[in-house]
Nucleic acid binder design. Structure first.
Lengths: 255, 255
DNA sequence: GCCGTTAGCCTGTATATACAGGTCGGTTGG
DNA sequence: CCAACCGACCTGTATATACAGGCTAACGGC
């Protein structure tokens, strides 16, 4: 036992290692929903950590919905652990073309800028780092259908700004140069500000769906974007893998 | 100094007390989004706890999206602290309770009805089949926070209507009788109609997030629901399993 | 005046230890 | 035979301590 000094040099934090191993075993099916996972003291022995560290790993996984714990019994893989990996990351251009319509992208703005606090935070870069920025309006049959404000990590996709967005959407390009390994979507209903209203050609009180989306490739954040959709016209679907294949009318809407 | 024994008899756990006080100060406006909250060592002094306990309280509030922390700077109130996790299918009651608030469910309507075309389609039943229907308003601290209009497949959950929804949410009950094996979420931004506005206490032009949600148990559709959230206050998060753990400010919102 | 060092505060991580209380199975006494 | 008890194991909470590394402001030398 090394004497309570620094544990793993500059390596991955201990509790992260434990979490990763458990997640890996769930991913490869070694641990099934309902299965019991190692107790805190078993992890102490296996990883050579203190119980508080094992406790933290298990507690966080419980918070994240992966595990369920109960005192006196043990820790178990949560039964409702669906593989949620796909929230349909679709290309807006493909969707429009599928409907038999034309797609155009109007680049309103594109250039370099220094990251402010929010952008730096979102891209996991330092304050003031140089990032690429673009503002694009997507048109379906020449009608605006989406406003896309995007910030791109130049370390991952240095050639972003020289892409021709009329032949390839930003998303398409970025997916090509850096395959997505993780993503995050935060969805809100908002009243769009005047700029967005102007680009989308909306009336004052028109509700709008705003998606804040970030994608990762490995450890690096590739890009984050604010996507504005005129609300009533657009829908975002999230499905588990076993979900439905056939689209269904949303209740409360006229067919 | 009391010697590391039992701290507060059988009373509220220390870290919960700290979390509750911070949440209370946010609720009553004493702490505004962006404000700095007490540092760990200040909490140590104020509550007479160890730093690890203060650390846990702050860390959990960060996980829940209430606070943002950065080493060397301090801990700050997150610009947004209400959220719903879209893919981690969470219970609205749990979420509210976690925030230290009270949850009540007001059953506005409940009964049997014949499925119209849309409902039959959504539940994968035949037109005119008998289905169960409920309209429930969820209240957080007696403020309406969600309207839930639900249709339930009687073949899967025949006892649905006799459930006591004050002690158990519909979702909770249905998950118990029929474990979810798949789900579908469709999200839209809408202008709520007068009925929904009335229940949520919203102004005319307030945007609203509407989630159309269906869940399966095996081959059968268990239930479908329309969930209305007051838009600006609410957000939905969708993440891949390897996604970020730390909440980030949404671009375009003031810090 | 400018720049670099430093001291001090902050969070992040990790350890060892302690006591509480829940659950379960086995042993013991009626 | 059954019930009551006990001990083993588990999680939950809390403490005190330690070292790391990010950030800032103040001080001092050139």
């Amino acid at each position: 036992m090394t004497k309570a000094v620094k544990p793993a040099a500059s390596e991955a934090r201990q509790y992260i290692r434990i979490k990763e191993q458990i997640l890996a075993e769930i991913a490869e099916g070694k641990l099934q929903p309902g299965d019991r996972v190692s107790s805190e003291s078993e992890l102490v022995a296996a990883f050579g950590v203190s119980r508080m560290t094992a406790n933290r790993a298990l507690r966080e996984l419980m918070f994240e919905g992966v595990l369920k714990r109960s005192a006196g019994i043990g820790t178990f893989v949560s039964p409702k652990h669906l593989d949620v990996d796909l929230l349909q990351i679709r290309n807006i251009a493909d969707e429009i073309l599928e409907r038999g319509h034309t797609h155009k992208a109007a680049v309103v703005q594109a250039g370099l800028m220094k990251a402010d606090a929010n952008v730096a935070d979102a891209l996991e870069l330092t304050l003031g780092a140089e990032v690429m920025h673009s503002l694009i309006v997507h048109l379906e049959n020449d009608q605006p259908i989406q406003v896309e404000e995007r910030y791109v990590n130049p370390l991952v996709a240095p050639d972003y700004l020289s892409t021709d967005f009329s032949s390839m959407t930003p998303n398409e390009y970025l997916t090509k140069v850096a395959p997505i390994t993780a993503f995050e979507h935060i969805v809100q209903a908002v009243k769009p500000d005047t700029t967005i209203r102007k680009y989308l050609g909306l009336k004052n009180d028109h509700p709008c769906l705003r998606v804040f989306r970030r994608t990762w490739s490995g450890e690096a954040v590739v890009t984050c974007a604010l996507l504005y959709y005129p609300g009533a016209q657009y829908r975002l679907e999230a499905r588990s893998t076993k979900g439905p294949s056939k689209p269904v009318a949303i209740l409360g809407e006229k067919q």
